[in-house]
């Protein structure tokens, strides 16, 4: 696993502008994809992406600078849920503009970066052999299907209509 822990360079934190710049780049690409794929108005989508980027920025900042050992994902989730909570003064505004960004537009851009990034593991992947690939595929399938079947049984038992 060379890449999991390689390098020992120190982090020089003049970086918040780099976060902002990266999020701006990501937002622009997402808004363009969102416009081509779903024809949502560009201004509304830009405001939606601005809200999501702000949440992300706040989350990653809090993870690194608040004295708690909590992941940014938790901060972002909690803030997002509170802002959109029905009854909050922000709820209508946030829900309206964020709904202009299709989840799939975000996912499509996100997975393009994933695709380029994962190519790096290709050589290690090739070295692992068919047997490990079989086990991995079965593990992923069983984790997904296990959760789906349990969820279905509980939903049916608690009488949730389809």
């Amino acid at each position: 696993m060379p890449d999991l822990i390689d390098g020992s360079e120190n982090i020089t934190v003049h970086g918040i502008f780099n976060w902002i710049l990266l999020l701006a780049i990501f937002s622009i690409i997402t808004v363009i994809g969102n416009y081509i794929g779903y024809k949502h108005p560009i201004t509304d989508s830009l405001i939606g992406m601005f809200i999501l980027s702000l949440l992300t920025l706040a989350g990653v900042w809090m993870e690194r600078y608040l004295p708690f050992n909590i992941s940014s994902i938790i901060y972002i989730s909690v803030m997002g849920i509170i802002l959109a909570f029905p009854g909050m003064p922000t709820s209508e505004f946030v829900s309206y503009y964020v709904s202009k960004i299709e989840l799939l537009s975000i996912v499509t851009v996100f997975l393009a970066y994933v695709g380029i990034g994962m190519g790096k593991s290709w050589n290690e992947f090739k070295a692992l052999g068919l047997r490990a690939i079989i086990v991995t595929v079965l593990v992923i399938a069983s984790t997904y299907l296990g959760a789906a079947v349990v969820a279905h049984i509980v939903l049916v038992m608690t009488g949730v209509p389809v």
């Binding site: 997402t30 949440l55 992300t56 994902i73 972002i76 989730s77 803030m79 997002g80 964020v98 996100f110």
Partner: peptide, 8 residues
Amino acid sequence: GVLIAKLA
């Protein structure tokens, strides 16, 4: 983070 924010 952006993905998580949208889901949240």
